[in-house]
Every structure is written in C-alpha cells, then in structure tokens.
Design a protein around this nucleic acid. Sequence first.
DNA 1: AGGAATTTGTGCGTATGTATC
DNA 2: AGATACATACGCACAAATTCC
Lengths: 232, 232
Amino acid sequence: MPNTYSLPLYIQISEMLIREMQAGRWVEGMRLPPERQMAESLKISVGTLRKSLAVLAEKKLLERRQGSGNYIRHVSVREGLYAFFRLELKGGGGLPTAQVISVQTLDKPSELPPFGASKQAHRIRRLRCLNSMPVALEEIWLDAGYATALTEEDLSESLYYFYKKRLNLWIQRIEDSVSIGRLPEWGQAHLPEARMILGCVDRISWDQGNEKAEVSRTWFDAEKVSYVSRLK
Amino acid sequence: MPNTYSLPLYIQISEMLIREMQAGRWVEGMRLPPERQMAESLKISVGTLRKSLAVLAEKKLLERRQGSGNYIRHVSVREGLYAFFRLELKGGGGLPTAQVISVQTLDKPSELPPFGASKQAHRIRRLRCLNSMPVALEEIWLDAGYATALTEEDLSESLYYFYKKRLNLWIQRIEDSVSIGRLPEWGQAHLPEARMILGCVDRISWDQGNEKAEVSRTWFDAEKVSYVSRLK
DNA sequence: AGGAATTTGTGCGTATGTATC
DNA sequence: AGATACATACGCACAAATTCC
C-alpha cells in the first residue's frame, strides 16, 4: 500500500522504539523480544525491523548480541554531562568539577576563530578540578546569540546542563587541537603551582544545528593530568 | 556455499572498494556504475553490495544520491591507512609519510603498560613527516605474538597496511593520552631543531579481537604541529 | 513542459550461517 | 547436543528521485 507523505516505515518504528525507551517502559539491561516475534506483533517484516534496530544501535541506545538478543543500553549521567570533558588524572579518571572565575559579555576578539552570528560573546573563565584538585584553566567564548545575559549563578551547575536546560543548546560535536601554551596572566593566581608551559587545548563546538556555538581554550597542568581521547 | 574462517562478504567488498579508491583508480566526484551492474560484475546480490556501499557512506567516502548514483567523496589518503594519524600542521592538514629509523625485537621494558601475551616485542622507531617536513618521532612496541621477525624492508609501506596484509592485524581502536615530554636521546639527531620540551602522545592500540596489540609514544614538535581530534 | 528511462530507496520473504544459552 | 536468536545473503516488487530526450 502506498504511504504518501510519510516517513519510511523503519524510521517510524525506530522513533517509536526510542519513545518507548524515553517513557521509561524499557529499562537498562532489559532484553527485547526476539526479532521475529517483535516483527510479527508490529506487523512488519523482520528485515525492516532489523533496519530500525540498526538505527538504535548506531545511536548507542541498543546493544545487539548475536545468539543472545537485543539489549537496552545504559546511558549514565557521566556519559552525558561530561562526555566532552577529556582531562584525566595521570593515574586515570577523577571526578570533574568546575568553579566559575568570571563571566563577562564582550566584543569578540579578532584573534578568535570565527563562530556564531553575533558580534559579541560571553566569556566564561573557570577553574577545572579533578577530585577537588585544581588541574586546568578554561576560557570559553559562547556566542551571544544563544543568551542575552549570563551570570555566575546560572553556571553553578554543569555548564552543558545549563546550555541544554536554559539555552536549548546541545553541543553535538567538538574539534580539539592539543598543543603547548603559556598560562595567561589572569590564571596565575588560580594554578599557582603550575609551570609556565602547559598543555593547551583549543576547542570548537557545534550545536544541534551544526552551527559553531562556542570556542574555548583550556590550559592544563601536564604534571597532573593528560588529555585523553578514546576513539572508534 | 559455506565460507568458513573468512570475513563477511559485504566487508570484503567494502574493503576492496576502499583499496580501489586509495589506489587512485577512482577519483573524487566520479560516479560508480549502477548498483545492479556492479553487483552483477562482482557476482553478488544487489542487497549485499548495498550493504558494502552503506559502509563506505558511513565512512564519508561515498555519497549516495537516490535517482542519481553513488559518488566518490574524499579520496584522501588519510581516511584509510592514516585514519589514526592525528598530527596536523598548524595551518591544518599535511600529507603524512614516515621513515623507519630502527627495528629491533627486545624484551618488553617493565615501564611499558601491559599489552599482548608475549614477553617480547618489536620496537619500531620512525621519523614522521608532514609534507616532507620532519615533525615528530615515534616509538612503537608491537607485541611479538603477531610476527616472529620484522625487518626494515617490511615496513617500507604504511605500517598499518603491513599489519593488515602480512600480520592479519587490524587496529580497530586506539586510546591516546596527550601530555608533555622530553625528546629522547636517540631522537635528537632526527629532530635537531626541536626544543627539548615537546608534545607527547602515549597510545594503546587494540586489534580486531579487542586485544591490546601495541603501545607507542610519539613526540611532536609543538611549534609546527598540533594533535587534532575530531569527535562525535 | 512533460513523459520515459534510469537509479537508488524501501519493504518483504526466505534460506542458511554462526554465536549463545 | 539441541534449541534459540541474531547475522548474512539472496531475490523480487514497487516507490521516489533524478536525468534525459
């Protein structure tokens, strides 16, 4: 039967499955019914259902185990909020926290790479800690188009949580460039033990619409932490 | 016909197609023959070929346009063999090459993190270049379990190509830890202009069976290149 | 402008291989 | 060893987008 003006069936199904998960009707670790059984109850072919499940697996929402079954995957808070924070203690890990140093709205300096549409940006400076130990300084420039004003109180929680909750901004993708830099003057009081030469991460972040939303630079004490990237 | 001890057909096909591209037989923008025609000449079904093409599209090597055709997207060498080489010139990019300095089979030093099953490992030292400019030194320790002997001639081509072709070893996943290090003595003759303090990448690589296959350390001249990581 | 031909996308059904229980 | 469940592979029919005449 022709299905004019509608999404492909396998997309409809995958969207429906995602809604089921979000509604909490399916919980972490749960095994889905066998594919043939699901396909039958949904009145679609196994091949089409498999295509839907492949979409979920691609999004890491599902784990497919041959001979075993399809399992709902865990998405921990840590995976979510700190997915893009990539400094770790030399021994590995560490619980990330942050302390806001200053927030100002300024004209974008010319030396920054282009991002966003506005002439202005919010400059956020933070001290980053792992297990309460200061390990890095961060300067973030968020395009002013996302918010008119920003205060320190706004950012008391996770920055990306604030982005998502208050600004309707999801950081979907980042590009990091790691090199060596010198601690800026404003940071010397906050990382007193650090040597003048530090690791330096330049980041560009894209929002959910694939527009450049913010740029940032992070100076990290290479004696204490490393930049860690796990891939593929 | 049962096909014991071999990769799935659609993977074999997609790998073959990637090699065709890397060999330069297909150039950017070129349209592939129609799927039915390709499938016929390859003596496989259209569905299987489509799965292979989906793999390439996933890797952004191919653009598929309904009603039009399948078009080659990037024929960048980086996508295949140099997928895991992540140093770029400060201005971006650069064609990676390598020059073998030495190859030896030794007992694993105790200071290396654990990897592989053997007590010995092959130590490969290389000078890495971008656009023929020396930018980094590399010391790779490959578990001896993958090969009994290794010579410089073996490694004249791409190292990962050699792994794949001769050792049946695919590097599937890596973890990089970027920090600051000092140029080792053996390398000072090869990167004479570099300052003593350099960027330093510690890497662990996993093979297709998710076993740790090699560890490596790369010292890069942070004046010339950055470590670049593009994610999500 | 329009219709035919071409080409990829979707969906179904089936058979067999392979991993897990 | 047998049963179960996902993975691979084949083939077909039709829909949708593009291209060409």
